[in-house]
Protein backbone atom coordinates (compact mmCIF):
# COMPACT_ATOMS: atom_id res chain seq x y z
CA UNK A 1 0.00 0.00 0.00
CA UNK A 2 2.80 2.30 0.88
CA UNK A 3 4.36 1.87 -2.55
CA UNK A 4 1.09 2.96 -4.22
CA UNK A 5 0.88 6.19 -2.33
CA UNK A 6 1.13 9.31 -4.49
CA UNK A 7 4.69 10.48 -4.69
CA UNK A 8 4.00 14.10 -3.96
CA UNK A 9 6.83 15.56 -1.93
CA UNK A 10 4.60 17.09 0.76
CA UNK A 11 2.83 13.82 1.52
CA UNK A 12 6.03 11.90 1.61
CA UNK A 13 7.62 14.30 4.05
CA UNK A 14 4.63 14.05 6.36
CA UNK A 15 4.65 10.28 6.24
CA UNK A 16 8.36 10.15 6.89
CA UNK A 17 7.96 12.20 10.02
CA UNK A 18 5.16 9.91 11.16
CA UNK A 19 7.41 6.90 10.75
CA UNK A 20 9.98 8.69 12.83
CA UNK A 21 7.51 9.13 15.61
CA UNK A 22 6.65 5.46 15.46
CA UNK A 23 10.30 4.65 16.10
CA UNK A 24 10.74 7.02 18.99
CA UNK A 25 7.16 6.50 20.19
CA UNK A 26 7.80 3.61 22.56
CA UNK A 27 10.72 5.49 24.08
CA UNK A 28 8.74 8.72 24.35
CA UNK A 29 5.90 6.89 26.03
CA UNK A 30 8.14 5.35 28.69
CA UNK A 31 10.06 8.63 28.99
CA UNK A 32 6.84 10.52 29.60
CA UNK A 33 5.62 7.94 32.07
CA UNK A 34 8.71 7.55 34.22
CA UNK A 35 10.36 10.94 33.75
CA UNK A 36 8.05 13.74 32.68
CA UNK A 37 5.02 12.61 34.69
CA UNK A 38 6.88 12.34 38.03
CA UNK A 39 8.46 15.76 37.46
CA UNK A 40 5.08 17.23 36.62
CA UNK A 41 3.60 15.62 39.71
CA UNK A 42 6.44 16.94 41.88
CA UNK A 43 5.88 20.46 40.57
CA UNK A 44 2.17 20.05 41.31
CA UNK A 45 2.97 18.79 44.83
CA UNK A 46 5.36 21.68 45.47
CA UNK A 47 2.53 24.19 45.10
CA UNK A 48 0.51 22.75 47.99
CA UNK A 49 0.98 22.35 51.70
CA UNK A 50 -0.47 19.57 53.84
CA UNK A 51 -0.80 20.05 57.57
CA UNK A 52 -1.71 17.68 60.36
CA UNK A 53 -4.17 20.33 61.50
CA UNK A 54 -5.90 22.05 58.60
CA UNK A 55 -5.40 19.62 55.73
CA UNK A 56 -4.16 20.46 52.25
CA UNK A 57 -4.17 23.95 50.81
CA UNK A 58 -2.78 25.67 47.72
CA UNK A 59 0.12 27.91 48.69
CA UNK A 60 1.55 28.97 45.34
CA UNK A 61 5.29 29.56 45.59
CA UNK A 62 5.39 29.72 49.40
CA UNK A 63 7.31 26.45 49.61
CA UNK A 64 9.97 27.88 47.28
CA UNK A 65 10.25 31.03 49.36
CA UNK A 66 10.65 28.88 52.46
CA UNK A 67 13.33 26.76 50.79
CA UNK A 68 15.34 29.80 49.76
CA UNK A 69 15.52 30.87 53.41
CA UNK A 70 16.02 27.34 54.77
CA UNK A 71 19.36 27.20 56.62
CA UNK A 72 19.26 23.41 56.86
CA UNK A 73 18.91 22.99 53.11
CA UNK A 74 21.78 25.35 52.33
CA UNK A 75 24.03 23.83 55.00
CA UNK A 76 23.51 20.48 53.28
CA UNK A 77 24.09 22.09 49.91
CA UNK A 78 27.32 23.65 51.16
CA UNK A 79 28.45 20.24 52.33
CA UNK A 80 27.90 18.55 48.95
CA UNK A 81 29.46 21.55 47.17
CA UNK A 82 32.58 21.17 49.31
CA UNK A 83 32.49 17.46 48.59
CA UNK A 84 32.29 18.25 44.88
CA UNK A 85 35.27 20.59 44.75
CA UNK A 86 37.51 18.34 46.86
CA UNK A 87 36.50 14.76 46.17
CA UNK A 88 35.75 14.95 42.44
CA UNK A 89 39.18 16.31 41.35
CA UNK A 90 40.98 13.75 43.53
CA UNK A 91 38.89 10.91 42.17
CA UNK A 92 39.21 11.97 38.52
CA UNK A 93 42.96 12.53 38.84
CA UNK A 94 43.44 9.07 40.33
CA UNK A 95 41.24 7.56 37.62
CA UNK A 96 43.22 9.41 34.96
CA UNK A 97 46.57 8.21 36.30
CA UNK A 98 45.34 4.63 36.46
CA UNK A 99 43.88 4.81 32.94
CA UNK A 100 47.15 6.20 31.56
CA UNK A 101 49.12 3.53 33.40
CA UNK A 102 46.91 0.73 32.08
CA UNK A 103 47.04 2.21 28.59
CA UNK A 104 50.83 2.73 28.63
CA UNK A 105 51.41 -0.94 27.86
CA UNK A 106 54.26 -1.01 30.35
CA UNK A 107 52.17 -2.35 33.19
CA UNK A 108 52.79 -5.92 34.24
CA UNK A 109 49.52 -7.90 34.65
CA UNK A 110 47.42 -5.22 32.96
CA UNK A 111 44.18 -7.19 32.77
CA UNK A 112 44.37 -8.14 36.44
CA UNK A 113 45.14 -4.55 37.42
CA UNK A 114 42.22 -3.23 35.37
CA UNK A 115 39.76 -5.67 36.91
CA UNK A 116 40.93 -5.04 40.48
CA UNK A 117 40.61 -1.29 40.11
CA UNK A 118 37.16 -1.70 38.63
CA UNK A 119 35.98 -4.28 41.17
CA UNK A 120 34.86 -1.81 43.91
CA UNK A 121 32.33 -0.39 41.42
CA UNK A 122 30.81 -3.85 41.12
CA UNK A 123 30.31 -4.03 44.89
CA UNK A 124 26.86 -2.63 45.74
CA UNK A 125 27.14 0.76 47.46
CA UNK A 126 25.26 -0.57 50.47
CA UNK A 127 27.66 -3.45 51.00
CA UNK A 128 30.66 -1.21 50.42
CA UNK A 129 29.44 1.32 52.95
CA UNK A 130 28.73 -1.32 55.58
CA UNK A 131 32.21 -2.71 55.04
CA UNK A 132 33.84 0.70 55.38
CA UNK A 133 31.64 1.46 58.37
CA UNK A 134 33.10 -1.57 60.07
CA UNK A 135 36.65 -0.54 59.21
CA UNK A 136 36.02 3.00 60.47
CA UNK A 137 34.76 1.84 63.86
CA UNK A 138 37.16 2.69 66.65
CA UNK A 139 35.51 0.28 69.08
CA UNK A 140 35.60 -3.10 67.40
CA UNK A 141 36.54 -2.25 63.82
CA UNK A 142 39.79 -1.88 61.97
CA UNK A 143 40.63 1.51 63.48
CA UNK A 144 39.99 0.06 66.94
CA UNK A 145 42.21 -2.94 66.20
CA UNK A 146 45.03 -0.72 64.93
CA UNK A 147 44.73 1.43 68.04
CA UNK A 148 44.96 -1.64 70.25
CA UNK A 149 47.78 -3.31 68.35
CA UNK A 150 50.02 -0.28 68.00
CA UNK A 151 48.95 1.52 71.18
CA UNK A 152 48.04 4.64 69.26
CA UNK A 153 44.88 6.70 69.09
CA UNK A 154 43.94 7.32 65.51
CA UNK A 155 41.47 10.13 64.87
CA UNK A 156 37.88 8.87 64.68
CA UNK A 157 36.90 8.64 61.00
CA UNK A 158 33.25 9.35 61.81
CA UNK A 159 33.83 12.34 64.10
CA UNK A 160 32.35 15.71 63.23
CA UNK A 161 35.52 16.94 61.53
CA UNK A 162 36.31 13.85 59.50
CA UNK A 163 32.97 12.30 58.54
CA UNK A 164 32.70 14.07 55.18
CA UNK A 165 36.28 13.11 54.27
CA UNK A 166 35.57 9.52 55.30
CA UNK A 167 32.52 9.45 53.06
CA UNK A 168 34.62 10.98 50.27
CA UNK A 169 37.11 8.16 50.74
CA UNK A 170 34.38 5.55 50.23
CA UNK A 171 33.00 7.29 47.15
CA UNK A 172 36.50 7.62 45.67
CA UNK A 173 37.20 3.94 46.31
CA UNK A 174 33.90 3.04 44.64
CA UNK A 175 34.17 5.21 41.54
CA UNK A 176 37.85 5.43 40.56
CA UNK A 177 37.46 2.19 38.60
CA UNK A 178 34.33 3.36 36.85
CA UNK A 179 35.92 6.62 35.73
CA UNK A 180 39.12 4.80 34.83
CA UNK A 181 37.06 2.68 32.43
CA UNK A 182 35.58 5.79 30.77
CA UNK A 183 39.06 7.25 30.29
CA UNK A 184 40.58 3.97 29.23
CA UNK A 185 37.96 3.37 26.53
CA UNK A 186 38.56 6.91 25.23
CA UNK A 187 42.28 6.15 25.03
CA UNK A 188 41.68 2.89 23.15
CA UNK A 189 40.13 4.74 20.21
CA UNK A 190 43.16 6.98 19.66
CA UNK A 191 44.56 5.94 16.23
CA UNK A 192 47.78 3.99 16.70
CA UNK A 193 49.27 5.87 13.76
CA UNK A 194 49.45 8.99 15.93
CA UNK A 195 51.67 7.22 18.44
CA UNK A 196 53.82 5.83 15.64
CA UNK A 197 54.38 9.19 14.08
CA UNK A 198 55.06 10.70 17.48
CA UNK A 199 57.68 8.08 18.11
CA UNK A 200 59.25 8.73 14.70
CA UNK A 201 59.36 12.39 15.64
CA UNK A 202 61.23 11.38 18.77
CA UNK A 203 58.53 12.17 21.35
CA UNK A 204 58.90 10.57 24.80
CA UNK A 205 56.04 8.99 26.76
CA UNK A 206 55.26 12.15 28.72
CA UNK A 207 55.19 14.19 25.57
CA UNK A 208 52.79 11.65 24.02
CA UNK A 209 50.54 11.87 27.06
CA UNK A 210 50.48 15.64 26.97
CA UNK A 211 50.20 16.17 23.23
CA UNK A 212 48.05 13.21 22.16
CA UNK A 213 46.36 11.38 25.00
CA UNK A 214 45.13 14.27 27.12
CA UNK A 215 43.57 16.21 24.21
CA UNK A 216 41.81 13.02 23.15
CA UNK A 217 40.52 12.53 26.67
CA UNK A 218 38.81 15.89 26.74
CA UNK A 219 35.34 14.58 25.85
CA UNK A 220 35.60 11.68 28.30
CA UNK A 221 36.76 14.06 31.02
CA UNK A 222 33.73 16.28 30.48
CA UNK A 223 31.38 13.29 30.66
CA UNK A 224 33.07 11.94 33.80
CA UNK A 225 32.94 15.38 35.42
CA UNK A 226 29.23 15.76 34.66
CA UNK A 227 28.50 12.32 36.12
CA UNK A 228 30.51 13.22 39.21
CA UNK A 229 28.77 16.59 39.63
CA UNK A 230 25.40 14.85 39.51
CA UNK A 231 26.65 12.14 41.85
CA UNK A 232 27.94 14.67 44.37
CA UNK A 233 24.75 16.71 44.47
CA UNK A 234 22.76 13.52 44.86
CA UNK A 235 24.98 12.12 47.61
CA UNK A 236 22.71 9.86 49.65
CA UNK A 237 23.60 6.15 49.95
CA UNK A 238 26.90 6.45 51.76
CA UNK A 239 25.90 9.00 54.43
CA UNK A 240 22.46 7.41 54.88
CA UNK A 241 23.90 3.95 55.50
CA UNK A 242 26.66 5.35 57.71
CA UNK A 243 24.15 7.32 59.78
CA UNK A 244 23.26 4.65 62.36
CA UNK A 245 26.96 4.61 63.31
CA UNK A 246 27.19 8.37 63.80
CA UNK A 247 23.71 9.84 64.19
CA UNK A 248 24.92 12.95 65.96
CA UNK A 249 27.34 13.86 63.16
CA UNK A 250 25.49 12.70 60.05
CA UNK A 251 22.24 14.57 60.57
CA UNK A 252 18.94 13.98 58.79
CA UNK A 253 19.74 17.02 56.62
CA UNK A 254 23.38 16.10 55.98
CA UNK A 255 22.93 16.27 52.20
CA UNK A 256 20.03 17.84 50.29
CA UNK A 257 18.83 14.40 49.19
CA UNK A 258 18.85 13.10 52.75
CA UNK A 259 16.96 16.21 53.76
CA UNK A 260 14.30 15.63 51.11
CA UNK A 261 14.09 12.01 52.20
CA UNK A 262 13.61 12.79 55.89
CA UNK A 263 11.18 15.63 55.14
CA UNK A 264 9.01 13.22 53.28
CA UNK A 265 9.48 10.04 55.29
CA UNK A 266 9.84 11.24 58.90
CA UNK A 267 8.02 14.54 58.64
CA UNK A 268 5.29 13.64 56.14
CA UNK A 269 6.11 16.96 54.41
CA UNK A 270 5.78 15.59 50.89
CA UNK A 271 5.09 19.00 49.42
CA UNK A 272 8.15 20.66 50.84
CA UNK A 273 10.27 17.60 50.01
CA UNK A 274 9.14 17.93 46.38
CA UNK A 275 10.16 21.60 46.45
CA UNK A 276 13.62 20.75 47.76
CA UNK A 277 14.00 18.04 45.11
CA UNK A 278 13.03 20.43 42.31
CA UNK A 279 15.40 23.16 43.50
CA UNK A 280 18.28 20.68 43.75
CA UNK A 281 17.40 19.30 40.32
CA UNK A 282 17.56 22.79 38.81
CA UNK A 283 20.89 23.58 40.47
CA UNK A 284 22.37 20.26 39.35
CA UNK A 285 21.20 20.87 35.80
CA UNK A 286 22.67 24.36 35.78
CA UNK A 287 26.06 23.23 37.10
CA UNK A 288 26.22 20.20 34.79
CA UNK A 289 25.33 22.41 31.83
CA UNK A 290 28.00 24.93 32.79
CA UNK A 291 30.57 22.14 32.96
CA UNK A 292 29.50 20.94 29.54
CA UNK A 293 29.66 24.41 28.00
CA UNK A 294 33.07 25.08 29.50
CA UNK A 295 34.36 21.61 28.60
CA UNK A 296 33.29 21.50 24.98
CA UNK A 297 34.28 25.06 24.17
CA UNK A 298 37.03 25.16 21.57
CA UNK A 299 40.24 26.83 22.56
Amino acid sequence: MVTHAPARPGRRRRRRSLEGWMFVGPFMLVFALVFLAPIGYSIHLSLYRNRLIGGTSFVGLDNYAQAIGDAQLWAGFGRVALFLVVQVPIMLLLALLVALAVDSGRLYGRAFFRVTIFLPYAVPAVVATLMWGFMYSNQFGLVGSINDALHVTLPEPLSAGLALASIGNIVTWEFVGYNMLIFYSALRVVPVTLYESAEIDGAGQFRIVRAIKLPHLRGALVIATIFSVIGSFQLFNEPAIMRPLARNVITTAYTPNMYAYSLSFSGQQYNYAATVAIIMGLITMAVAYAVQLRGTRRK
Binding site: L52, S159, A160, R247, N248, V249, T251, T252, A253, S262, S266, G267, Q268
Partner: peptide
Protein backbone atom coordinates in the same frame (compact mmCIF):
# COMPACT_ATOMS: atom_id res chain seq x y z
CA UNK B 1 3.88 15.34 71.52
CA UNK B 2 1.21 14.83 68.88
CA UNK B 3 4.16 14.75 66.47
CA UNK B 4 6.62 12.79 68.57
CA UNK B 5 7.66 10.50 65.72
CA UNK B 6 9.04 13.51 63.84
CA UNK B 7 10.50 15.07 67.00
CA UNK B 8 12.40 11.88 67.83
CA UNK B 9 13.74 11.72 64.28
CA UNK B 10 15.53 15.06 64.73
CA UNK B 11 16.78 14.42 68.29
CA UNK B 12 20.28 13.54 67.10
CA UNK B 13 20.41 16.51 64.72
CA UNK B 14 19.90 18.86 67.65
CA UNK B 15 20.39 17.42 71.15
CA UNK B 16 22.88 14.95 69.65
CA UNK B 17 25.31 17.86 69.17
CA UNK B 18 25.95 17.66 72.91
CA UNK B 19 27.56 14.26 72.35
CA UNK B 20 30.01 15.31 69.63
CA UNK B 21 30.80 18.96 70.31
Amino acid sequence: LPFQVYANSVFNDTAGKAYVS
